[in-house]
Simulated scan of single mutants.
Amino acid sequence: MQNDIKLIDFLRDRHSTPVAQIKEPGPTQEELDEILTFAVRVPDHGKIAPWRLVVYRGDLRQKLGEAFLKLALEKDPEMTETARQAELNRFTRAPLVVGVVSTAAPHPKIPEWEQVLSAGALAFNLVLAAQAHGYVANWRTEWIAYDDAALDVLGVKPGEKVAGFVHIGSSDFPTPDRPRPELSQVVTYAGEV
């Protein structure tokens, strides 16, 4: 019964910490392995694992930022210094970033849409698993998830799509809750007038 109360409190208070407020430390390798193990426990019709995870950490994050800046400058050579720094810091804002990559493809029995939904469930489960381990997390996409050249730099293969990049770390920032939808605006009961 005590665990149920904790889970209810966890779900009631769950929120995403802004990426700019995420800092060291990040999870140890042992914690990360456990977080990732929990994250992949998602609905997966047919048990085909239509997704994969890519962990970006260490010095690679800065190298990726340099690549993102180069690509962004090709599109907008007049970028401000603030925008340039944002590209350089895109993956260094948190101790680690986990890419959730959807590998959804035509299948004789499993609708592709269900495969895509499974990748989305994995991304959110990753956020929850990180938070359950005492870390903060934020699920983002941003332009790099939709740019072919950036996807190539990130190791995303042709035909794959990024469901999100989950930034994981620590924070002492008191994140205020954001407005949530009123149930009356988003819930209907079938058969009732």
Rank of each mutant, 00 (worst) to 15 (best):
T141K: 08
T92L: 14
Q85T: 07
A39S: 06
D44Q: 04
K63I: 02
F38K: 02
Q2P: 01
F38V: 12
G99Q: 10
E24D: 14
I35Y: 11
G99W: 02
S118D: 01
Q2R: 10
F10K: 01
E87P: 01
G65N: 06
E74I: 06
H107I: 10
P108R: 08
V193S: 07
I110A: 04
L60W: 14
V40F: 12
A190L: 10
L122H: 03
F10I: 09
G65D: 10
E160A: 00
D33T: 13
L71C: 08
A130R: 02
F10W: 02
L117Y: 12
E160T: 05
E87I: 01
M79S: 09
V42T: 14
V116Q: 07
P77V: 14
R93P: 04
R140Y: 07
A163V: 02
T103K: 10
R14L: 13
D147H: 11
E74W: 06
E74P: 02
A94K: 08
H15K: 15
K109E: 11
F91I: 08
Q62V: 08
V136Q: 02
T103M: 04
S170L: 14
E30L: 15
Q21I: 07
V101N: 09
F124A: 00
R178V: 01
D148M: 11
R140H: 09
R52S: 15
Y56K: 05
Q85W: 04
T37I: 08
E182N: 06
P108A: 03
F165N: 09
I22W: 12
T80R: 09
A129D: 00
A39H: 02
F124V: 04
Q115N: 06
A129W: 02
A39N: 06
H45S: 05
E112G: 01
V42I: 15
K70T: 13
T103H: 03
T92G: 09
M1V: 10
V55A: 09
Y135N: 10
L183I: 13
V193Y: 06
A150V: 14
K47N: 15
E112K: 05
D4F: 05
Q21G: 01
G26Q: 01
K63A: 13
L69N: 05
A123P: 13
A72K: 15
E182L: 12
S16N: 03
T103D: 07
P176D: 15
L88V: 04
L151E: 01
F91D: 07
V55I: 14
I144K: 00
I110R: 11
L36V: 06
I48L: 15
K63T: 11
A67H: 03
P181H: 15
L7E: 03
F38P: 03
E66A: 14
S102P: 00
V98C: 04
W51V: 04
D59T: 15
P43D: 09
G169S: 10
L71H: 14
P25Q: 12
